[in-house]
Design a protein around this nucleic acid. Structure first.
Lengths: 133, 133
DNA sequence: GGCCGCTAACTAATTTATTAGTTAGCCGTC
DNA sequence: GACGGCTAACTAATAAATTAGTTAGCGGCC
């Protein structure tokens, strides 16, 4: 059995999604010009990747004259959360506590960051936030 | 440019690493029998993957009679931390706070989990842990 | 001593991921 | 009305990932 299509964003896909999240609805030419000069891509390369993103359901398009305008189907936050859940499942037995302990135990963390984490969790509600009704 | 070899563990690779972390030094036959009956793999499939893991530097082997015994080169914690850093870089602009806010904002989190996270961070030192000297 | 079974090594097949070239259609310009 | 430039669609090339078959060597068993 060959590898099945990833449900997460690959590097090339994420690069495009970041531009879309930043710029909003964009034509392919916009995406090309939105790429950093240090790592440009050919128009056709971007087109190929964005069509894969559409097949995966991460973006949709509408026609505008001759060109297609692409929009993200999920927000950046949602994509990040989806990746966090993936990580939780793969490496932390779905334990958010174990994930947090890993973050806290990282030698590269600074005291200021630890303080910010403490503040963030202090302000967290004790119940998960309900969807507005 | 084709995709460059991932620095992270793929699904097939992670499955084997988990067995190695659990069992410690193992022969290929041990890995095969350590796989769940619901998703077995052929001996040669495991062998192929474990050799890729060795090429990537995740495992090393020593000879024991005719067989090779494979051991993990990194601990499960280290591998998890490495993935967390990857996630931070890819989706959270290297902000641990933004990652934590994402975890806390997950609808699927339970009040008990939030409490455990609060406890965990309350017990965290204000300075990153120094290596023992 | 020759055969059986286990091992690692090599080969193979399929799919995804990444990058980009070629093609064909449309629209405006000269 | 033909040409140039833009577009999407199609094709292509390469490497990685996943799974597994084939080969060759070595040791033990009858």
């Amino acid at each position: 059995m060959p590898p099945k299509r990833s449900n997460t964003l690959t590097e090339a896909e994420l690069r495009l999604m970041k531009i879309l999240w930043q710029r909003g609805e964009s034509a392919v030419a916009d995406l090309v010009s939105g790429l950093p000069d240090t790592a440009p891509l050919a128009y056709t390369s971007v087109l190929t990747t964005i069509r894969i993103l559409e097949k995966k359901g991460f973006v949709s398009h509408r026609q505008d004259g001759r060109a297609f305008l692409y929009s993200p189907c999920i927000a950046e936050d949602e994509a990040g959360l989806s990746e966090v859940r993936q990580l939780l499942q793969r490496f932390f037995g779905n334990s958010r506590e174990r994930l947090l302990l890993s973050v806290l135990g990282d030698d590269a963390i600074t005291p200021e960051e630890i303080k910010r984490l403490k503040d963030a969790i202090a302000n967290a509600p004790n119940e998960p936030v309900e969807e507005s009704e």
